[in-house]
């Protein structure tokens, strides 16, 4: 099996997803993800003739709603779910770094 994904790639993606993986897990997931990508490569290699590319498994487009205001949820109920709230806002640790 050619190398579809490197151990470093997996470590990078795990870091982006804020996942902390052990060395053993890195090895395990690198192998598993490579198998998934290998399968995708097999499908990609098929002669698919004129089958159009799909972005979605459903034959649907233009699912739209009218621009009409509906009900919102109660603020107190929402804020009660959060670990911390203050002045009607969610309170979070200080934000480091730039806004994306």
């Amino acid at each position: 099996m050619p190398e579809r994904i490197s151990r470093d790639d997996v470590a990078h993606v795990a870091r982006l997803a804020r996942l902390s993986l052990t060395d053993a897990e890195l090895d395990l997931f690198t192998g598993q993800l490579a198998a998934v990508l290998e399968h995708a490569a097999d499908v990609d290699a098929l002669e698919d003739g004129d089958i159009p590319e799909m972005t979605h498994p459903f034959p649907l487009h233009n699912v739209l709603r009218d621009d009409v205001v509906g009900a919102c949820v109660d603020r107190d109920e929402v804020l009660a779910q959060a670990p911390l709230a203050e002045e009607g806002r969610f309170r979070v640790p200080p934000i480091l770094g730039e806004e994306p």
Binding site: D67, V69, G70, A71, C72, R75, V78, L79, G88, R89
Partner: peptide, 27 residues
Amino acid sequence: HTATKLFCACPNSFGDEPNTNVCPVCL
């Protein structure tokens, strides 16, 4: 310049009390 948000029916309104125009979709 719409009445509601892009993907839910919460009002698109400037200057309202914080977190009053929210629903399960935009949260």
